[in-house]
Design a protein around this nucleic acid. Structure first.
Lengths: 219, 219
DNA sequence: CATGGGATAATTGTATCCAAAAATAGCGGG
DNA sequence: CCCGCTATTTTTGGATACAATTATCCCATG
């Protein structure tokens, strides 16, 4: 089982991770049909774990699976993306407000460290993973496990567009700036300012993602 | 396939529904261990769809599944329930605000009809299903599919406690009253009042659910 | 008598095989 | 030539069979 080597409890979850990366990395495009047999052969496993991985990705919102008709990479509508960002604004705003009072020297240092590491990374998937890690560290002190899980869930269908949106470089600068401003306002315990930065951060990302989404929408 | 008769595309989803009802109905208690073989035998299917159903219920938050160690009915902490209600307040408040302007004669009549049917039902599971239906009709005109799905998701781990909380009868009265007040304020397009009623409705439910949750917490 | 080790049984994860459904190709009629 | 229908192929869903892991029991030992 060559695939299971890469740190995963079960073959299905390892596969799910691989497929997630493949979608985020643009290896599979929206609308593409994922054949169970093909994936099974490609990774050297049977179709059972493949099916479980596909089911997992389905309810992460990355795939649309129709009965007896295969799994396709989902093609989110702009309206849907928009809605997801509205939800993120609510959930992440709440998390940030609750985390603000819980941050301390150590958590702030950790945030800075993550941000430094993040800016050094040079591949898109690394940025995405790093961005998730940064925001988790930012919201973590709120100790709201369910909200944090929801944060991840709301990102999942979006991140593949972020990945290609960040590549130009210009947006990457603003993105990093906003992260550093977030750290600063959190360190200063300035709730209003932090909320404002987060709002701007998400609004800017929303615009970029919507552009990326609609630009590849025609096929 | 005796089970598939009940309106479901796939055996796994039919099983998932049955198991959900079994948990909501109190047939399975928090901490109970669900054996794949046993469930498979009970419903006359193989373990494959059972596994898929269990995976489904896992990410609905009804089960805790550990590798090679079986699936247990989850035992939510009071803190977790509390968090879920906070999220519901945000999401449902937003949905209600957006739906308010979209309601018309027909949708309001539908709401009244659902509420009437709801109050006639005499079994707990029927109340829950009816309550979900009512709120979906209430939020539906907002046309926010993702938020509506999130609404369902946030309820899932809670509803089994609501089911047993509603049985006394006293709370059922307040619950019905609040529903009727919601209809009235929506009909009057009074956003502030509707928000206030919804808030009270959820807060009251929260208290009852927390009581039910902590009372059966010891075992 | 408590405790740790090892064989045994029970249970989950995966592979292989069969059945049901859908996509596709080939054929006849308009 | 195009359209609709049927037969074949392909693909998915489910059942059975096997491998890997964990839990249980039993006994030896301090």
């Amino acid at each position: 089982m060559a695939i299971a080597r890469l740190a995963a409890a079960t073959t299905a979850s390892a596969l799910a991770q691989r497929l997630r990366e493949a979608i985020d990395g643009g290896h599979w495009q929206p609308g593409d049909l994922l054949r169970q047999e093909q994936i099974a052969a490609e990774y050297g496993v049977s179709r059972i774990p493949v099916r479980e991985a596909l089911a997992q990705l389905q309810n992460e919102g990355l795939l649309d699976v129709a009965h007896y008709r295969g799994a396709r990479v989902s093609r989110p509508q702009a309206q849907e993306i928009d809605e997801l960002f509205d939800l993120r604004l609510m959930v992440e705003g709440d998390l940030l407000a609750r985390a603000l009072g819980q941050h301390d020297q150590r958590s702030l240092r950790e945030l800075k460290r993550l941000q430094d590491a993040l800016e050094d990374a040079d591949d898109r998937l690394g940025w995405i993973a790093g961005d998730i890690g940064f925001h988790e560290a930012l919201y973590g002190p709120a100790r709201r496990l369910r909200s944090l899980a929801l944060f991840r869930q709301l990102r999942a269908p979006i991140d593949r567009f972020s990945a290609q949106a960040l590549s130009p470089g210009t947006r990457k600068q603003g993105w990093a700036d906003e992260h550093r401003q977030l750290i600063a306002t959190v360190a200063a315990k300035d709730a209003a300012a932090a909320q404002e930065i987060l709002r701007n951060h998400l609004q800017a990302t929303r615009a970029v993602v919507l552009a990326a989404c609609s630009s590849q929408g025609e096929s």
